[in-house]
Design a protein around this nucleic acid. Structure first.
Ligand SMILES: NC(=O)c1ccc[n+]([C@@H]2O[C@H](COP(=O)([O-])OP(=O)(O)OC[C@H]3O[C@@H](n4cnc5c(N)ncnc54)[C@H](O)[C@@H]3O)[C@@H](O)[C@H]2O)c1
Ligand SMILES: NC(=O)c1ccc[n+]([C@@H]2O[C@H](COP(=O)([O-])OP(=O)(O)OC[C@H]3O[C@@H](n4cnc5c(N)ncnc54)[C@H](O)[C@@H]3O)[C@@H](O)[C@H]2O)c1
Lengths: 250, 250
DNA sequence: CGCGATTTGTTCTCGCGTTCACAAACTCAT
DNA sequence: ATGAGTTTGTGAACGCGAGAACAAATCGCG
């Protein structure tokens, strides 16, 4: 699968580093807005919530943009990171599925301010087409191909029910989309060369629940037990045990 | 920054595995709904979108719940995973910040169906209090302490602007919340023993943009692989940002 | 009862990511 | 110019997770 023969490309930035660059970018922006012109790796690391050694190593993959004994020029570094990520240009984005979540996403100001422009809101429900959301008219899902081609859309967001996710993904790919951000709780498969990232609320909550359970009963079998140690936690009322069936998705 | 007490509990499940258990749980639920009673690791791995060896290794941390030569009993395994995660019980959750995103979250049916129950919607804006969202009345943020204590709330969701995130987190912690899911693009710091996970839309998009830019820049085709597995990276601050483009910003 | 087919659970190896630690490079004061 | 004080960039050690491979266990069937 991940053959990746690491060719002799100029620089190969580790995936873990790529995931942190946006964080550094945001921290730098915050510093710049605070009137700070230069900062040390320690300063920036604190603002970004990471270890300073890790920060320096991450930045070293981009090049040598700092000055020893001094630190980094905030604006300069910010531009370099933005350029590396690719957000110095504007990326057209389509959002498919304008329900509860789709509305929120469409209204999200963070899109435009960070290098992304919503060029279309699409929904399969004919009753929703024409509705104005955040100044953009909702159009029918069938227009995807036309719109995507016209605006050279490379990035698509899926906010439909899980059952529709795979179909939407297929049609996005057919329309030339090569990067997908999927909010639906479904595993979608795409051809080689297409990137998919998923954001899953329930998974995040379940991960928290796991640790929470650990905190509550230190290491009990799995049966309800008294609270142990951990201050601040009052007894968690638990009762009937029933596997969460239902599952309105997939 | 999971403290990880390391008090040598019976089994220590790797964090990477914990993050995948919910995926397996969902896949099992889908299989069960399809009337499937037993499945092999290969079947389940396919449904979950992972490698079968990885799946078996993950499950081995929970115990030996399969039968060699046969596979896994879907319902039994589902229960075991649900119990391990802690979603056989119902977790009370509070959502703070009932704006665009907060509304969507409140209306999200996946909450209830996966072991979580929204016990309160809170907002600092007095004009919003009293509004009914998904059958729950929005209450004032000041009621957090009372509500959290009353329902023994351990998990809180932050959907306020970034500027308010740290303050909200502090008050949640003071009210006994020990797990926080943060949607605001801000780095929040909490005391030892409190878990924070963040979901950051713009970071996800920027990661996609990076790879997209790579694809565009000639280079070798078929370079990028399928990306997945959202992982813990700590977030950062302040929104309402504007990427500085060197050489004039329109 | 034994044998082949099947599938799990585990061991082993490899690569990636994190962290430490330090030399190199730079500034500033004298 | 020189030395003291800073801070970067990176080599190296280390730990964790991914994946391949295989022995052990179970079933079906003659
Ligand atoms: N609401 C949340 O806070 C939330 C949180 C996490 C995940 N999710 C997930 O996001 C997805 C959307 O959630 P929601 O609450 O907005 O649901 P929703 O039902 O409110 O909206 C779904 C929208 O998708 C449209 N749609 C359905 N099939 C379509 C298709 N084939 N093509 C185009 N559009 C189609 C529907 O018309 C509807 O407008 C779901 O998969 C949900 O599980 C939602
Ligand atoms: N809308 C999205 O799709 C989206 C996506 C990703 C991230 N986010 C982030 O989620 C957060 C919320 O986004 P939104 O679009 O819902 O914003 P919003 O402005 O619509 O809603 C924010 C709500 O928080 C309330 N609030 C403000 N300060 C508060 C405080 N101290 N205590 C309690 N409540 C307070 C406000 O009254 C408002 O109702 C933001 O940080 C945003 O960056 C939003």
């Amino acid at each position: 699968m991940t053959a990746r023969s690491s060719s002799e490309t100029t620089r190969v930035i580790p995936e873990a580093t790529v995931a942190r660059l946006p964080v550094y970018l945001r921290a730098l922006t915050a510093l710049a807005e605070g009137g700070i012109r230069t900062c040390s790796s320690e300063d920036l690391a604190t603002a970004a919530g990471v270890n300073s050694a890790k920060l320096r190593k991450d930045l070293s993959y981009l090049g040598s943009y700092g000055t020893r004994g001094v630190g980094y020029d905030v604006d300069y570094l910010r531009y370099q990171i933005a350029r590396e990520i690719g957000v110095t240009q504007d990326w057209p984005v389509v959002i498919v599925g304008i329900g509860n979540l789709g509305h929120a996403l469409a209204n999200y100001s963070g899109f435009r301010s960070r290098g992304f422009r919503v060029v279309a809101l699409l929904d399969a429900d004919a009753e929703r087409t024409g509705e104005m959301v955040a100044g953009v008219a909702v159009r029918h899902f069938d227009d995807l191909e036309t719109i995507a081609r016209e605006h050279a859309v490379a990035i698509g967001v899926i906010a439909t029910p899980a059952a529709a996710a795979q179909d939407v993904a297929d049609r996005m790919v057919a329309a030339g989309v090569t990067s997908i951000l999927n909010f639906a709780p479904a595993v979608i498969s795409v051809p080689e060369g297409v990137d998919v990232r998923k954001v899953d609320l329930s998974i995040e909550l379940q991960i928290l629940a796991y640790h929470e359970q650990r905190k509550a009963h230190g290491q009990a079998r799995g049966e309800v037990d008294g609270v142990d140690g951990v201050d601040g936690v009052d007894g968690v009322a638990v009762d009937g045990v029933e596997v969460a069936t239902v599952g309105g998705d997939s």
